[in-house]
Design a binder for these strands. Structure first.
Lengths: 349, 349
DNA sequence: GTTAGCACTCAGATGCATTGAGTGCTAAAC
DNA sequence: GTTTAGCACTCAATGCATCTGAGTGCTAAC
């Protein structure tokens, strides 16, 4: 008998090799594979013997006798506790993640997103909603409200559009009369300016003019840019991709892939919705009627939504050509109608 | 030759029967099926003849010679244009939809939701995030800001917590001094009250005390309830279910179903995350180590996130037992860390 | 014009042989 | 004692042939 412990170094390396390989390939790992892929300096036969030991002590198992080995639950546990070392994420990656977490979505997008979710649930197919396009929107007014000695709430009133708010932390404490001064100055410079014209250059100009407050202003103005910048590009929100997979025609992985890829391509869906918006009517596209090759097994029902009689966006449902058209048409029309109404109510008179 | 048009009434009814049946069953429809299920008063043989005609004129097609018929694209088009009548949605249903569209999510939930999305993307598995639990939160201050003669912005400052804003449309126009009066009165009644105590009954009381403004108050107070009411129940947000399906172990529809159902059950996931939160440490649960039967083919990596050193929630990733543990552990830790930091910054000092 | 009867077709299920990846065991080599 | 080559053995996966049954089209009777 050897004095080796139950789990010597070589066994560890083999367990690691099996686990790593299986994690990557999802195929049972044989002794030859390990001998080839991992430079352990031992022959397949030796590895076989070790693997047999590892199986006996419960770290590996065999799906069937002539397959390779896979880690057992105990094997994974050992791997996690004693073998693996957590990979470290690059600094750049960390920053990117941080930034994404800090990003806030604009109100309009939230509504579009929620609408997509509702539509998907109601229809049991995939749904998408294009958020409103508002080309001619102007900044109607801007209001600064002191929440706290170091905290100011920026309120932006956009017409035709919405009220947006944003919190800004101030380094230096501002007195109320200072805030009022800044507030009225900003209004005099920004009132009735189209959002598309409010870029970094204009704001930098303003910051220079009011340079005594530049410290506070920079943060505020940056917030304004952030809120407004994305205000005039349309975005499409999708939901219910999972519903698609419930449909028997998409049982086969390939056909499901084709459809999901389709939904992934932004411009396909968004150009379809733009068409619908411009047409001003509910539209049903069946299979190859669409120009898109991958759409031959799908149908789409889409409808525009309007504010003050003007179409400003569109919603749609995608399902198999074998779709519950009657039901879906009713739902799409209903949701488009409601969405238009809700948006009209949010518009400042 | 008959004088009948290309598409007489009986053909229409048969096309309708085939389409309806196929929409519901996803199986090619045979003549016997139609004779049995739809009361057309004709025998299968007659239906066969009609179906042969419909196929010749392109409305139906056969996947293969000994299968039933299915509608062609042209068939669906005819069905949509001339046969189907859009079903109407019940009044009750309409209201329900309307209400869901009008609901707004609270800021905290949005952050949790976005975090889940990021985590799912980074890990390529399914991700979930429990939104922060804040049992002892109190209403620190309440601010009313006139945006417009008929529009008031309600600002709620919660400690420890967040700033929430809500727009209220006022029927009657309020003078600035009236608003200030209401504002200070509301503050005197609500300041430092735990959110859990601010219920409809307290607010109704206040409304009665200030009954000259009750019209405006009712809307405002309702908004407050809406914003705060759900403030102290934890919610779990999930994302990346689709990623799960990409894993080869979940190719089989049944096993995928099991996992997706698991993710659907709120309390399974949330109790797991609560455990993690209370443990205060990153946790790896492998296969049957969990008590849940359907989890035997999955692993979960979860970590708490903290504000001021106190765990207030948790995030997690679910994948097959064959999971990239090293990578996922790093990602989960990173995201939990960032989330805690971001939330601390949102807290009012 | 409608229907019953019947021969015919073909996808899908079932059963059986073949193949090959991978094992465990034995005995030789180190 | 440990490692390795050789070999018989196992069994999932694959390919192939057969069987079954749903559904058709055609013909002839009603």
């Amino acid at each position: 008998m050897s004095l080796r412990s139950n789990m010597d170094d070589r066994k560890k390396r083999i367990l690691q090799a099996v686990t790593d390989d299986y994690i990557n390939t999802a195929e049972p790992v044989g002794s030859r594979t390990i001998a080839r892929r991992y430079d352990l300096g031992i022959s397949p036969a030796t590895i076989r013997n070790e693997m047999a030991d590892l199986e006996e002590s419960g770290y590996l198992e065999q799906p069937h006798v002539s397959a390779g080995r896979i880690p057992s639950q105990k094997g994974y546990r050992f791997y996690v506790d004693f073998i693996m070392q957590t990979s470290n994420v690059s600094q750049k990656e960390k920053l990117r993640i941080r930034r994404r977490l800090e990003e806030r979505k604009r109100e309009l997008d939230l509504i579009a997103e929620e609408t997509a979710r509702i539509l998907a649930q109601l229809s049991s197919y995939a749904a998408f909603v294009m958020s409103p396009v508002s080309k001619a929107a102007v900044l109607k007014r801007l209001e600064l409200v002191q929440i706290d000695p170091h905290l100011v709430l920026v309120i932006l009133i956009v017409d035709p559009g919405f009220v947006k708010t944003h919190l800004v932390v101030t380094e230096r404490q501002l007195r109320p009369e200072q805030l009022i001064h800044i507030n009225s100055y900003l209004n005099s410079r920004l009132r009735d300016i189209p959002l598309s014209k409010i870029g970094t250059s204009l704001l930098r100009e303003i910051s220079a003019e009011l340079d005594e407050y530049s410290n506070f202003l920079d943060a505020t103005l940056e917030a304004i840019v952030q809120v407004l910048e994305r205000g005039h590009e349309e975005a499409v929100f999708t939901d219910g991709q999972l519903n698609i997979l419930e449909q028997p025609e998409f049982r086969e992985v390939e056909s499901a892939k084709r459809v999901l890829d389709l939904l992934g391509e932004d411009n396909t869906v968004s150009s379809l919705l733009l068409d619908t918006m411009n047409s001003g009517n509910i539209r049903i596209v069946i299979g190859r009627e669409s120009s898109h090759p991958n759409m031959d097994i799908c149908s789409v029902v889409s409808a525009p939504y309007e504010v003050d009689g003007v179409p400003i966006g569109a919603v749609g449902v995608l399902g198999p050509t074998r779709m519950h058209y009657a039901e879906v048409v009713a739902i799409v029309e209903l949701v488009a109608g409601h969405l238009g109404e809700i948006l009209s109510k949010m518009v400042i008179m």
